[in-house]
């Protein structure tokens, strides 16, 4: 009886979430849909980072670099090969996944802070590397979709028709990004809920104990890196499609830091609060400029907000949600 109630509650929550996803663009302005779409790209990257850092315990300060791989794959395919923008997304994911796998190999020898430095080095070096391969990447100019192949940009005419529904380009970007985000969340949930999640968490909590219990450490770590890379690559592709341009400044170190902040605010090691983490990193800079545009003040407010949130919610939004739901879950899962 209680189990059935729990299940139906769960279904109700998921459908409420889906309803918000479907109808939200109709309540906000067209312009805000674009902001929400960008938050969706962060959301996808943050899921990937949570799988790697929250579940497997491998700190990455270089996820912006993996996003750059995805973004540039998309850009190069559109500009050089004249692919339609939407179809480049899977390839961007695969490309970043492969790079993530390669980055994961040295990670087998490094742990904790040393890994943080290694991934950070990747993020720092990425803009210079991009400039070095200017034939493919357009150097510091970057690649602009509208100039080089406008016919491949979906919704340039202002209207997009999907499954019989006509919508604006910004609404299209919103639905595209968040549909992929929801699928990504579902996949992540499937990965962490069973054996895979236990393997990840065992590596995070104690490598030695994990190995003794038969976990293949090398495989688990590189798999986590590759999977996380796929998420980052897809996020980078969507980010590029939304901005219709990529250049070395699109994916700086600050984006890597932003993603880590989002993941921690959302709650590492849980999936439920990550949406809030993504919205936090998307909207906080805008909100703090609204308070005052005086030099330095927005940064001050931004930093102070991060500190206050972390002091109030040391385990992130996910931790808070779990705490709030505890009376309910305990009640639901105890036999009367």
């Amino acid at each position: 009886m209680r189990r059935a109630l729990g299940m139906s509650l769960w279904v109700a929550m998921v459908s409420a979430g889906l309803a918000v996803f479907l109808f939200l663009p109709h309540f906000v302005s067209d312009f805000h849909s674009r902001d929400l779409a960008q938050a969706g790209a962060f959301f996808i990257a943050i899921i990937g980072l949570d799988l790697l850092t929250g579940y497997t315990g491998q700190i990455s300060l270089g996820h912006g670099a993996l996003m750059a791989i995805g973004g540039y794959t998309t850009a190069a395919l559109i500009v050089h090969e004249h692919w339609r923008d939407v179809w480049t997304i899977p390839l961007a994911g695969i490309a970043a996944g492969i790079v993530g796998f390669v980055v994961g190999l040295p990670a087998l020898r490094l742990s904790g802070l040393y890994l943080a430095l290694a991934t950070f080095a990747l993020a720092v070096a990425m803009p210079s590397l991009i400039k070095k391969f200017s034939g493919l990447t357009g150097g510091s100019q970057g690649l602009q979709f509208l100039e080089s192949s406008p016919s491949q940009v979906t919704g340039l005419s202002g209207k997009v028709t999907v499954l019989g529904h006509t919508m604006t380009q910004n609404h299209f970007l919103y639905y595209l990004t968040w549909s992929i985000g929801i699928v990504g969340l579902g996949v992540a949930w499937l990965v962490v809920r069973g054996r895979g999640g236990r393997t990840f968490r065992s590596v995070r909590d104690s490598e030695i104990a994990a190995v003794s219990s038969g976990v293949n450490l090398a495989w688990t770590k590189t798999f986590a890196f590759a999977l996380s890379g796929v998420y980052a690559g897809v996020a980078g592709a969507l980010y590029a499609i939304q901005n219709e341009i990529v250049n070395p400044l699109s994916f700086t170190v600050s984006i890597s830091i932003l993603l880590l902040v989002g993941a921690v605010v959302g709650g590492l090691g849980s999936l439920s609060g990550l949406v809030l983490g993504a919205l936090f990193v998307e909207y906080l800079p805008t909100l703090s400029t609204n308070v005052s545009t005086r030099e330095g003040v927005p940064d001050f407010i931004y930093g102070a907000a991060i500190i206050v949130v972390m002091i109030l919610l040391p385990t992130g939004a996910g931790g808070l949600l779990r705490r709030l739901a505890r009376p309910l879950t305990t009640w639901l899962y105890t036999r009367p």
Binding site: L260, D299, F300, I306, M310
Partner: peptide, 15 residues
Amino acid sequence: TVVIVTLGLLFVVDG
């Protein structure tokens, strides 16, 4: 969490 707090502090001091 503490690392993120120091990142926040970075923005605060810089700002």
